[in-house]
């Protein structure tokens, strides 16, 4: 429960998910920002104006999925590490992009444990790519190949036992 430990429930998630058609068409941003925080970092960062401007700074981000190209600039900008990119267009599975701020970073080609929102292990998944050249300023981004039904469940990785 969100107020108890920040974990969303099904209904919370449904409200921020792109529809199946959008997910199948390519990458899109999933913004798991549940409170009206005075912050507009994502909306300012979006190069496609897909995150609606916030006349009131405290408004929750709203994604116009017809404009979102899943570029991931908002993922890097979000101070809450609350933005994930999911791409359901690949035949081999869904590609998730996760913000990550731990060292060591995994290597592309490595299989790592995928963790759910409560840190539970959901399986071992392939790391497709890692961008972490500028962790001083922004989180690294892990590109993880997961089964389609895991796209809304995996939110972290662990290298332990990898």
């Amino acid at each position: 429960m969100l107020a108890k430990d920040g974990l969303p429930e099904e209904g919370d998630l449904r409200a921020v998910m792109p529809d199946e058609k959008k997910l199948a068409a390519g990458p899109a941003a999933i913004i798991e920002c549940w409170q009206e925080i005075p912050c507009d970092a994502c909306a300012r960062a979006c190069p496609n104006y897909a995150i609606l401007p916030m006349p009131n700074l405290y408004e929750r981000p709203q994604v116009d999925f017809s404009r979102c190209r899943g570029c991931g600039v908002c993922l890097s900008a979000c101070p809450g590490l609350a933005i994930f990119i999911a791409d359901g267009s690949r035949s081999e599975g869904a590609v998730l992009r996760l913000p990550y701020e731990f060292l060591p970073l995994p290597q592309a080609g490595q299989r790592v444990a995928g963790l759910g929102r409560a840190g539970e292990v959901l399986g071992k998944f392939l790391v497709l790519d890692v961008t972490g050249a500028n962790m001083r300023e922004n989180p690294a981004v892990i590109f993880l190949l997961v089964p389609p039904d895991m796209a809304m469940r995996v939110r972290n990785i662990s290298l332990e036992g990898a």
């Binding site: 430990d5 974990l7 798991e32 549940w34 409170q35 925080i37 809450g80 409560a118 840190g119």
Partner: peptide
Amino acid sequence: YWVHAAKIRRSGVPI
């Protein structure tokens, strides 16, 4: 903030 709680929860820290 819930987003800060979510970060430690997904690293496996119980609250």
